[in-house]
């Protein structure tokens, strides 16, 4: 039986982890490679790096991070943040990323998804959708949530599936950072509208939220950042908890 995945996400800025795990035995707590290794050794099903480097001159730092991580971690590695073109995707894949997540560029021009999925295969193309509730519908936001587009998130999700996305990473801008749980309604609406796997993101504060994301939101994978970074829960604790709630996980 296919297992639900738990994906820890690390924010990386100028090649350094922004919010990291506070483990005393870490030689270099800011090194994304060391942190990723801890997660993969701990049973993470996949590792996600979100590059939040703001300045253009430092953008190349992520390539070095990906290259070093892929030599140490033998679970899938997804990298997102600032991916604008087929060339960017190609560069990340060549450095050892297994999947690339694309956000703003997909909204600006869906041809990026059409072309990249044709060139590299849908299996490595993840479209990241940032959505915010507006009345009875969800709208897409880009540029890390700063720009409102007016695009209907559920419709856009279907369009991305048709364009060749292999997976969708859905983040609720309303819930992100609040620790009150995923936007279950958003997840389940998108999950039932598309036939590709969805990864729920934004808002996790405790392990029940992961359970809800899968059971109520029908997400195939759950992504979380802070609950793992600050050592509140280990990946193993999360998996054991999901298992105790009858959710199939890899243990």
């Amino acid at each position: 039986m296919l297992k639900n995945r738990i994906i820890p996400c690390l924010d990386v800025k100028n090649g350094r982890v922004v919010k990291g795990i506070n483990f005393v035995d870490l030689k270099d707590a800011g090194d994304p490679v060391e942190q990723a290794k801890i997660y993969s050794d701990g049973g993470a099903d996949e590792i996600c790096f979100l590059d939040i480097t703001a300045s253009n001159e430092n953008r190349d730092t992520i390539y070095d991070v990906v290259e070093r991580t892929s030599k140490k971690c033998f679970v899938p590695l997804t990298v997102g943040g600032g991916v604008r073109s087929v060339e960017d995707i190609s560069k990340l894949l060549n450095c050892g990323a297994d999947k690339v997540s694309i956000n703003t560029a997909a909204v600006n021009d869906k041809q990026v998804i059409v072309n990249s999925s044709k060139k590299f295969g849908s299996q490595c193309i993840v479209v990241a959708i940032d959505a915010k509730k507006n009345g009875d519908r969800w709208e897409i936001y880009t540029h890390g949530g700063r720009n409102k587009t007016g695009i209907n998130a559920v419709k856009f999700a279907k369009e991305m599936e048709e364009s060749g996305a292999g997976e969708l990473l859905i983040t609720s801008m309303d819930k992100d950072g609040t620790q009150v749980g995923y936007d279950i309604e958003l997840m389940s609406q998108i999950s039932s509208s598309v036939n590709i796997p969805i990864i729920a993101s934004g808002g996790v504060g405790n392990l029940d939220h992961l359970v809800d994301g899968i059971k109520l939101g029908n997400a195939n994978a759950v992504l979380a950042a802070s609950i793992f970074h600050y050592g509140k829960y280990s990946i193993k604790q999360a998996k054991d908890y999901l298992d105790s709630k009858g959710i199939p996980v890899r243990i």
């Binding site: 296919l2 297992k3 639900n4 299996q123 590709i196 195939n220 890899r250």
Partner: peptide, 16 residues
């Protein structure tokens, strides 16, 4: 065979 959409494709993730 995704049984008329009952199963998602691609088959992505960890399986035994």
């Amino acid at each position: 065979d995704n049984q008329n959409g009952k199963y998602k494709l691609p088959h992505i993730g960890w399986n035994q």
